[in-house]
Design a protein around this nucleic acid. Structure first.
Length: 451
RNA sequence: GCCCCCAUCGUCUAGUGGCCUAGGAUACGAGAUUCUCAGUCUCGGGACUGGGGUUCAAAUCCCCAUGGGGGUACCA
């Protein structure tokens, strides 16, 4: 069995090898995640290798962004990052070796220059072991271009397949975990290992993540980059959790798991064979699950940058009120952005009225009288607590022979500018006596002016 | 075209020959709670791509077809 073999002997070594040509994508992150989970579960090592052999498309900025994304997700590595662009000597050495042994030769292209190409043995089967798919075999006649593959490009840089095979071998990689789209590259690499007399690693080709429409996830699907999740106010933990469930399941019905628990339960044999579509709605749900379990102080720490970006004045607000605010909103918000948006009324001096709510609740007959009564009532209250507030508002409702809703909604709009907020008593308490009275007066003015 | 991979509710998945009149989650619909929203709770509709085998028995094994995806570069 595959696993009895890996358990007892040498330490497991895996690698994540992104090419720095842009942001880290969802698919890339998931590949990194599975490498990470596999390494940590087996107490192995994770190596980070930057495959920057495309001189035109690779950039240092992209490298930095990829590293930032990995760190944000909590995917740390043990060795590296190694850069292929700094390992040219190694590739050259092996290319020369193959040249010397007659397994490779130069090919001159009038337009491009001189490249080193490798000839694949004809008429053989190349079989490799894949932890997810079992044995996969290719007929050597179907590999490469007319039976050969380019090793060194005419610009002196190695091709992906060559650099990849050399590095995986040099770095002692035991398990190559990567996307399904690399299956057809694998026989080329295996042929290289064999020509070089190197041991062939085990492979695990994980199914791709597809967009909602079933095609390969790309820019046009939106929300495809890890940093976008961060910017939209998703928590690293929920993205970690959600991504791990794309193509893997623990076997029982558990879905909400901490990174530690996922590491503990992750095994390659439970990775699915089927490509998964990215379900944004479920990520959103999951994010709320994490949000509502957070301690107010922790939540605030994460929300702070969002608040600052929105221009909220945080210094003038007492700690205690901020915590109360977090407590009231954590289960209502699906993302930190939503949290920011929903709490704006609390920080902004000038209320931003939602016109529909104003029309529906403030400009309604009787609203003015209700608000006046509430204002007066608040003025007479020395201590603003929920019990007295409730008693007062319930009495008022009865007096005016109304439904509670008719009282609560105008107040809500007056205080928050919208018809959506936490419970009305809590909202009044949160806003505070002085500010509540001011805002109610402003609302009354607004009603009067419009008539 | 050729090569390779894959195939269970809209979506993520459980299921490794009998526990399946197929389970969970999400999304959706209905109801309950209620001052709005969110949440929570209850209920509901919703899937084994098709056809052949193998077997006493198939979502599960085999074959074919179909469908989807990936690859077919001096990109990675």
């Amino acid at each position: 069995m595959i696993f009895s073999m890996t358990k007892e002997n040498k330490k497991i070594r895996v690698r994540f090898a992104p090419s720095p040509t842009g942001f880290l994508t969802t698919g890339g992150a998931r590949t990194a995640l599975f490498n990470y989970l596999f390494a940590r579960h087996h107490n192995g090592k994770m190596i980070l290798r930057i495959e920057d052999t495309d001189r035109v498309r690779s950039t240092p900025e992209a490298t930095r962004m990829v590293l930032d994304s990995l760190k944000w997700l909590g995917l740390d590595w043990d060795e590296g990052p190694f850069y292929q662009s700094r390992r040219l000597d190694i590739y050259k050495k092996y290319a020369q070796k193959l040249l010397d042994e007659g397994k490779a030769f130069y090919e001159e292209d009038p337009a491009k220059g001189k490249a080193v190409v490798f000839r694949i043995k004809e008429n053989t089967k190349i079989v490799f072991k894949d932890l997810i798919h079992g044995n996969i075999s290719f007929d050597s006649d179907n590999i490469g271009r007319d039976g050969y593959v380019v090793l060194m490009k005419s610009d002196g840089f190695p091709t992906y397949n060559f650099a990849c095979a050399i590095d995986d071998s040099e770095m002692g990689i035991t398990h190559v975990i990567r996307g399904d789209d690399h299956i057809s590259n694998t026989p080329k690499q295996v042929a290289l290992y064999e020509a070089l007399g190197k041991p062939v690693p085990l492979f695990a080709h994980i199914p791709l993540i597809l967009g909602q429409d079933g095609s390969k996830l790309s820019k046009r699907h939106g929300h495809n980059y890890v940093m976008e999740y961060k910017d939209q106010g998703f928590l690293a933990e929920s993205v970690f959790n959600f991504l791990s469930l794309l193509g893997w399941a623990p076997g029982d019905d558990t879905e909400l798991m901490s990174p530690d628990e996922i590491v503990r339960r992750f095994t390659m044999e439970r990775v699915s064979h089927t490509p998964a579509k990215f379900d944004f709605a479920k990520l959103t749900w999951m994010n709320n699950q994490y949000l509502k379990k957070m301690e107010p102080a922790d939540l605030f720490a994460l929300a702070k940058p969002f608040f600052e970006k929105a221009g909220y004045d945080l210094k003038s607000v007492p700690e205690k009120e901020l915590m109360k605010l977090m407590e009231l909103y954590r289960e209502r918000a699906k993302t930190l952005s939503e949290l920011t948006e929903a709490t704006g009324f609390f920080f902004t001096p000038e209320l931003n009225y939602d016109q529909k709510s104003v029309e529906k609740f403030l400009k309604k007959d009787g609203s003015k009288e209700i608000l006046s009564a509430v204002r007066d009532g608040l003025k007479n209250m020395s201590d603003l607590n929920q019990e007295t507030l409730e008693g007062f508002l319930r009495d008022l409702t009865k007096q005016k022979n109304l439904k509670f809703k008719d009282v609560a909604q105008p107040i809500r709009v007056a205080l928050t500018g919208t018809c959506v907020s936490p419970g009305i008593f809590e909202t009044i308490e949160l806003v505070g006596k002085e500010k509540a009275i001011t805002r109610i007066e402003e609302a009354i003015k607004l009603i009067s002016n419009s008539k």
